[in-house]
Amino acid sequence: MTMGITELLGFGPQGWGMPLLSAAGITLVAATGGFLVGSLLGLCGAALKLSRTPALRWIGNFYTTFFRGIPEILIVYLFYFGGSVVLTKIMNLGGLPGFFSLPALLIGVLAIGVVSGAYQTEAYRTAFMRLDRGQLEAGSACGMSRFLLLRRIIAPQTLRFALPALGNIWQSVLKETALLSVIGLTELLRQAGTAAGSTREPLLFYGVAAVMFLVIGRITGFFIARTEKHLAKAWSR
């Protein structure tokens, strides 16, 4: 009954070390996936918001206001329940009876992606606004096509200006993955909950989960800061 902390957290047959580590891997996968989906949506959102067509701008504004104004957990529920309703309808129409649901990881990546996309929209938009218009004019005066302008002038500078904000968004995406425990994804928090339930040591296991979130955040934050420094080199005089 009485097991030491080292045994509980160890990698032995009774230890929770391995399950917790692999759950941390799931957390990292969900966060990375969500962030990448969010980048895609963020770029589209920024393009919409910077568009000359009022209707497109309106869509962009609606996207960012809506998904930044309501709790993330509701969006997770929307994708969780909504996804299975839509999928079941499609499958039933296709002649396959029964109930269908999407894998929790996919739902999580999509839900987190949609939310972080709204925040990333703002990051890319403000970064784009900081571009020096003169450089764009100079570029087109040199005969660069729109694609070349995008590749040589717009993309590298926008990325560099957006990076600090993107770093913050990454940190909140990482923390948001904890919400996916409620839809049954065995990420860090859920695994810690399982361990806490079976050993009756909630303080220890939720504490360990907290520390692991801190460590992942610190390590990834370190690399983001290094990239930031690296990209800033070209601008330092």
């Binding site: 923390k175 909630p202 907290a210 979130f213 801190l214």
Partner: peptide, 22 residues
Amino acid sequence: ELFRGTPLLVQIFLIYYGLGQI
């Protein structure tokens, strides 16, 4: 550092389930 670096849900669980252990 502690409260900004960890998910709010973890903090809620730590307090709700964890404190009773003391």
